[in-house]
């Protein structure tokens, strides 16, 4: 809105407010990240880090396909999760922004609460629900299904369910905000021009909601490549994803350089994928819909 104030970056009033955040994120985000980079060039001996510079870790990573298979699996799961989240979240966000006048606030509170509840607990809840002897199968059996109709616990399906479950709220809120910001008169103008509701949605609402959809995709993707809980608890650790591999590297193998390097590879690849999609996305926007 109005009132952006020109200030020198040395202005004391500005520094008082800016410095705590700068110091916090420099000391406990940026510095650790940089150190992680440095760590990848060190060696370990007998589970002990020795500060000797070497490229061993990187040679290891680039020669073993095992790491890359897991990374590929991780990216596949993350992208699938993004698509599922978008497909599920969009109608919900749309309904929140345009319908549900009386219940809008209540639904928002319900979603917020579910979002703010710890993922571990909810994931644990899913285990109890999906288990062969769990709540779902018990209820299904009561209405006549054979025992163990739902047998997805400890598979990738369960992992995906958990990922979508834990990340869906991000998509709903981000898309909701972008739809909510659309000028209502544009939609009325489309109706006025003779467009049906569906056409209006397709040609006006959806394009205008694009920034929200894009932001949601990036956020979910970046968070999804780092999931650890879902593959471990719901997927039973059978097909580990990158984060789990990193975890094991640190905890069981106590190989810090390798763990750090795997962390960097994961982050770099994730950012690269985002940039790649961004490029495709902006190209498409420049050339118009084909």
């Amino acid at each position: 809105m109005n009132g952006e104030i020109d200030r020198s970056w040395r202005d004391p009033e500005l520094l008082v407010k800016a410095l705590p955040s700068v110091i916090l994120q420099t000391a406990f985000f940026l510095a650790p990240l940089l150190m992680t980079v440095a760590l990848t060039f060190q060696r370990t001996k007998n589970f002990q880090l020795t500060w000797t510079w070497s490229l061993d870790t990187w040679t290891d990573i680039f020669t073993k396909p095992h790491y890359w298979t897991i990374l590929g699996h991780t990216l596949f799961m993350a992208i699938t999760c993004v698509i599922l989240c978008l497909v599920i979240a969009f109608p919900v966000a749309y309904a929140l922004a345009t319908r549900l006048r009386a219940f809008q606030d209540h639904v928002k509170v319900l979603i917020t609460f579910a979002f703010l509840t710890d993922a571990t607990l909810k994931t644990f809840g899913w285990v109890l629900f999906l288990d062969k002897n769990g709540a779902a199968n018990y209820l299904l059996q009561q209405v006549g299904f054979p025992p163990a109709t739902i047998d997805i616990l400890f598979t990738d399906w369960a992992t995906m369910l958990g990922m979508v479950y834990n990340l869906l709220s991000f998509a709903i809120f981000t898309i909701y905000l972008s739809i909510d910001a659309i000028d209502r008169s544009l939609i009325l103008a489309a109706y006025d021009a003779g467009a049906s509701k569906f056409r209006t949605f397709w040609e006006v609402t959806l394009p205008l909601a694009r920034p929200g959809i894009w932001a949601a995709s990036v956020l979910i993707f970046l968070l999804a490549v780092g999931v650890f809980l879902e593959p471990k608890v719901l997927g039973g650790g059978k097909s580990p994803m990158s984060a789990e591999l990193i975890r094991q590297t640190f905890e069981t193998r106590v190989n810090w350089p390798l763990g750090a390097a795997l962390t960097l590879v994961l982050m770099t690849v994730a950012v690269f994928v985002v940039l790649l999609f961004n490029r495709v996305y902006s190209l498409k926007r420049h050339m118009g819909p084909v």
Partner: peptide
């Protein structure tokens, strides 16, 4: 509110952990 020289880097740094997977943040820390 403020327009200043390092606004973009400042905002970027301050908001960065938002898009950083928690697990990796935990490991790095």
């Amino acid at each position: 509110r403020y327009k200043f020289r390092f606004r973009l880097p400042f905002t970027g740094l301050s908001a960065a952990p938002l898009a950083f997977p928690q697990l990796l943040l935990g490991i790095v820390l």
